[in-house]
Structure formats: structure tokens, C-alpha cells
């Protein structure tokens, strides 16, 4: 009886939708790789309503945390590739393989939209005995083993930025104090638990504006208009041009094998959503560089990003397995 009833209702539902049997015919599950309140979460929750409007469907967003985002990545990769399960993630899955965190990365996915890129910023505690990037390098070289850098685990933004500094300036002897995210680390910085922290600009900018911490340098090829007067590392040391511009990114992905129709519709919807003036204002206010790329352009961006970062970490001796093992070519080869 019950089964019959369910069957009847679902048959009814099917006939009702065959009139417009087009994607999306039901709600889409959006899996956010990081916890509620984090930057990936905020970015996704602010762009998706605009994309929903363009798509004419519903996206139910859920946070799935754990194992540095690998749980969410595996969940979506294992889900049916029908366009109804979407991954909303950040850059770090591109490093899972070499960090020994998993055997999957965005190579198993089709990028729907790479929304934006962040710029790393080097900030210091107000009492630190240096006021600029050059002064910091000089100080660290004179006082080895005393300056404390915040870090967020291997493969995180601080580890990449630190590897970059070491590659360009020569090995610096600093203490890397591990935190479980840039929020807690910046809190520690303000309280004097650490002296220097490489963080994404958006996370630190309010603290800098209020004078609670000082900005040493932006990790970019040119000064950032949000922070006039703060030097760009590439202008100080030409060596950085090899690696920059570099930054963490946010993107929306579906598993490979998703029907083209669904990919096209989702891409169009998110491209439209990313053009929303409110969203643009919000992202620019936080110092993010809008990208809004998809398709081949996004694939090219991803593989370039992966090559550069993976080999940087490999050369710094931070990886568990060589990028070579996974066919990640050295940049420029």
C-alpha cells in the first residue's frame, strides 16, 4: 500500500516534470569543503543565491569538514556524476597527492567556475622589531632561530609563502608555529604568540586598517590598491617574479562525466552569479581578485597552479611524494 502510494506520487512527479525535463529537475547538493563561517563558506554562500536565480533551481549548501577537505572531495567524487552534487572548494586539493593526503585532486573534476583568487600578505605583530619586508629579512638573518612564523600545516598558504621566501632569499632560520587556520593564527599574532604570519589579504586587512598588526609586504608583482604604501615583494626582489602571481583560489566543481548540458548550465549560472555587482563589491572589499573563469581556461589555470606550487614545496622538502610520481611536470618543462 505504502509502496504503491510512493510509486504513484513519484510517477506523478515524473510526469509533471517531463513537460520540462531539463536540468535541474530537482535540488542540487552543494558540498562546501570547509566549515561554516570560513572564507570558502562565506564566498560560496554569497555567490550561490545569485547563481540560483540564473539557474532557476535550488542549491542546498552543506558544510562537510574533516581531513583538510579530503572528506568532502571524496564524497563528491564518489557521488553520481549527474550534476546534482557539486563541490565548493578551495585550492588545497591540488596538493593532496604530493602531501599524501589522498589519491584524488581536481583532475577528477570539471571546473564550473573558478571564482576568485586571494593575494598573500605578510603581517607582523606591532611590537616586532622590523617594519618592512627588507628589514624583516635582515633581522632574521642577524637573529637566527628567534622569529616565530605562524603556519597552518604542510601545504597551507603560509607553508607555500615561506617556501617561496626560502627559495628566493636563501634558507631563513625561523620557528614555524602550527595553527589550524589563519583565523586562530592571526589572533595569536595580535597577542604576541607569533611574530610574523603569511595570510590571505582578506583575512588580515581589517586588522591592518585598525592598526592591530602591521603589513610588511604583499606577495604580488605590484602594490595592492587596498594597501597603498605596502611594498610588493617582486619589486624588492626580482626573484619572486618566477612564482608570482600566486594565491589561494575558490572554485565550484562537478565530477568528471557529468552531462555536458548540466555543466553548461551550471557554468552559465555561476558566471552570471559572479557578475552580480553585490558579489563583486563584496569580494573586492575583501581584497580578492575576481577571476570567473571556466572550461579550458580554468583547466589551464589549475594545472599551472599545481605545477608551480607542487614543485616549490618539493624543492623545499615539504612533500611526502614527488610531484613526478603523479605526472606533475616541473614548470617550464
Amino acid at each position: 500500500m505504502k509502496r504503491y502510494l510512493i510509486g504513484a506520487i513519484s510517477a506523478l512527479a515524473l510526469t509533471a516534470t517531463t513537460v520540462a525535463a531539463e536540468y535541474p529537475e530537482k535540488e542540487i547538493q552543494g558540498i562546501i569543503q570547509w566549515g561554516a563561517g570560513g572564507s570558502t563558506d562565506t564566498v560560496m554562500r554569497s555567490v550561490t543565491p545569485h547563481a540560483e536565480a540564473a539557474l532557476g533551481g535550488t542549491v542546498v549548501m552543506q558544510n562537510m569538514t574533516g581531513a583538510v577537505g579530503a572528506i568532502a572531495l571524496n564524497y563528491v567524487a564518489d557521488a553520481e556524476a549527474d550534476g546534482y552534487t557539486v563541490l565548493m572548494g578551495a585550492e588545497n586539493p591540488m596538493l593532496y597527492k604530493i602531501m599524501g593526503l589522498g589519491d584524488k585532486d581536481y583532475g577528477e573534476f570539471v571546473p564550473i567556475n573558478i571564482l576568485a583568487r586571494g593575494t598573500p600578505l605578510l603581517v607582523a605583530n606591532n611590537d616586532a622589531p622590523f617594519n618592512s619586508y627588507s628589514e624583516m629579512i635582515a633581522y632574521v638573518k642577524e637573529n637566527p632561530g628567534t622569529v616565530r612564523f605562524g603556519s597552518t600545516g604542510p601545504g597551507g598558504l603560509p607553508s607555500v609563502v615561506t617556501a617561496m621566501i626560502n627559495a628566493v632569499e636563501g634558507e631563513l632560520d625561523v620557528i614555524a608555529v602550527p595553527y589550524d587556520g589563519d583565523g586562530p593564527a592571526l589572533t595569536g599574532l595580535q597577542g604576541g604568540a607569533i611574530d610574523v604570519m603569511p595570510a590571505v589579504l582578506g583575512a588580515a586587512i581589517e586588522g591592518v586598517r585598525a592598526g592591530n598588526m602591521k603589513a610588511l609586504a604583499v606577495f604580488d608583482t605590484a602594490e595592492n590598491d587596498k594597501l597603498p604604501g605596502v611594498e610588493a615583494v617582486a619589486e624588492v626582489n626580482d626573484g619572486y617574479n618566477t612564482y608570482l602571481p600566486w594565491g589561494p583560489f575558490f572554485g565550484v566543481f562537478v565530477p568528471k562525466g557529468t552531462p555536458d548540458d548540466a555543466v553548461a548550465k551550471l557554468s552559465a549560472a555561476y558566471a552570471e552569479g559572479a557578475k552580480n555587482p553585490e558579489f563583486i563589491e563584496l569580494m573586492e572589499g575583501r581584497g580578492f581578485t575576481l577571476m570567473g573563469i571556466s572550461g579550458d581556461e580554468a583547466e589551464a589555470f589549475l594545472s599551472k597552479w599545481q605545477q608551480g606550487t607542487a614543485w616549490l614545496l618539493q624543492d623545499a622538502g615539504l612533500t611526502k611524494a614527488s610531484p613526478e610520481e603523479f605526472g606533475i611536470a616541473r614548470p617550464g618543462e
Binding site: T42, E206, R286
Partner: peptide, 18 residues
Amino acid sequence: TAIMIGALFIHGLNPGPM
């Protein structure tokens, strides 16, 4: 409060010391 900070941010405020 972490989520509320996100909410303020989405609503166009800049939650921070300022």
C-alpha cells in the same frame, strides 16, 4: 559568532576591529 562574522560580511559590513 564565527558564523555571524560571515553573516555580517555577506551583508556588506567589514567585521573587524574597525
